[in-house]
Amino acid sequence: MHRSIHSSRRCLLARRALLARLRAFLFCLLGLMPALAQAAPIKVVATVPALASLARDIGGDRVEVTSLSLATQDPHFVDARPSLALALNRADLLLAVGLELELGWLPTLLTGARNPRVQVGGPGYVDCSMAAMLRGVITGPIDRAHGDVHAGGNPHYLFDPHNALRVGKLIAERLSAIDPEGSAIYAANERAFAESLNRRVADWQARLKPLKGRPIIAYHSSWLYLAEWIGLREVAFIEPRPGIAPTPSHVARVIATGRAEGVRAILQETFYADSTSRLIADKLGAKLLRLDGGPNTRRGESYADHMERVVAALIEAMAPAVQSSKEARP
């Protein structure tokens, strides 16, 4: 008897608790309504963080941007983790570097993504190299005796900010095509982005002027566009051929070239092994610059912030005289 009263009371309490929870849930749902009424953000997926940063600058609040790789990862060799296929499955727009940079991992992910919007040829697939001024295009016969070369051109084109401007324009166009309502906003954002980047480019070029004609050694052919933009001379690569790890005899020749040219800076991305580069830097008395391949978007770094970091590092390594004036800057 006692027990049954007790249990019915417990039952009542449980029911009340359930009702309270249900009410809370409904309130939450109502609270969400206005948010749902607003257009869902355009989901942009970029293969590398530099493109993600450009998409964020141009898409503003209307887009939600994901990068499939981090700035510290080698974009040639990203693991095709299924979680990346999931991001592509839900994407409205895919920004790829192109030029076969992502060939080892993106096609598998795209097939698994089951998303016709971002398949090659789909409205949301953007090969950003289509807008870039490309260098290193192979015009002769090609085979891999030359290493892991990219026939269509060197894919590290975003290291020339002029290419970032061109790609920015392309992103604005493609965003407008899939989201016509936002086209005015995208166009305005693109203008603002271009103005701001142009100002910074002018500033960088002024600061980098003293470096024109200086020799550098690069680990991989990642800095072709940067070198051409600034007027640096890439006199040697630590990789004997793209994608081939350095060998002793090649390293010896790199040191010889470095000495003959008076190289002051060695450039390499952080994801390459640095013991060989450090050895060469020691022998040459040069500075080893280990730079991220793109902006650290997780820390909120933008494309322009990253380029500023690269420019500052170059100036610090190669023109100590220029550095003091840089420190005087606000």
């Binding site: 490309l134 290193g136 295009v137 192979i138 002769g140 016969p141 269509g152």
Partner: peptide, 19 residues
Amino acid sequence: ESVHSAESSAPVLGPVGAA
């Protein structure tokens, strides 16, 4: 100049040629 004998020296717009 550095030897890029089979590469076009001037920049070109978008992928061309072998690609």
